[in-house]
Amino acid sequence: MLKFLRRNFAGYAFLSPWLVGFFLLAIGPILASLYLSFTKYNVVRPPQWIGLEHYFYMFEFDDRFKKALQVTFTFVVISVPLKLIFALGVAMALDKGIRAIGWYRALFYLPSILGGSIAVAILWRQLFNYEGVVNSVLSLIGIQGPYWLADPDYALWTLIVLAVWQFGSPMLIFLAGLRAIPQDLYEAAEIDAAGPVKKFFAITVPLLAPVIFFNLVLQMIEAFKSFSGAFIISGGSGAPLDSLLFFTVYLYNEAFSFLRMGYASALAWVLLLIIALFTIVAFWTSKYWVHYENERG
């Protein structure tokens, strides 16, 4: 043991920043939150073991939990496909060979960098305000826009638009995937009398499937975790009428507004399990629709 330490000391010394960060700042809190999820803990008093009680309560009595699930699922199910379709559409347009493509790529990617920030969320709130830019533009063509942010029927849509607007990173990945499809397959299909729609479904989609799958899983996880936009636009509470009560917003409220750290930890673990479940299902279905060029078989 001593000999092992002596021989490898330098290596571990160099690794130490990462090791400290990983164990102290990642693994530590993760395990702590798992433990806390089985306790009653309000930061002031020491945690008090209650077993699975939080989990039972969550699924049996907590209506806000169910509302949060509903809002989050709606957001994921609508925003992810929309974002991917939009990203693929723009990528295909750019792939046609446009002048100054580098500028367009940068321009379209910009929202992906900025979009997650608090500043853009605040900007979004201004845009969709009742007297904001969106309604001013609509009034120019004679439409009286609704209370986007105050009306529970519309509030979630402003966030879906915000999410779709951040299509830059899946678009870049799609663009790279499209570039990798050999041009002569399209030419062979052209001679084989395939029209544009047929080419898209018979060549582009199957050959892009690994990339579509990658983007789908990544964007799905990101959508489940989405927080800052909903938090800012709903004023931190999920308002109006809990229509923006994203799972993460609910979790934040339980933890930091009501200081129910134990319950918030349990919520966090449930979110993790939901994301894991969806990811597993996605991987399982991928066997049937994702074709890998280099796969042995």
């Binding site: 050999p182 030419e187 052209e190 001679i191 395939a194 060029e293």
Partner: peptide, 16 residues
């Protein structure tokens, strides 16, 4: 597609 011809490509261009 309307020229009623077939073409064999150098890369074969088989749909993978």
């Amino acid at each position: 597609s309307q020229r009623n011809l077939s073409m064999v490509f150098q890369s074969y261009a088989l749909y993978p």
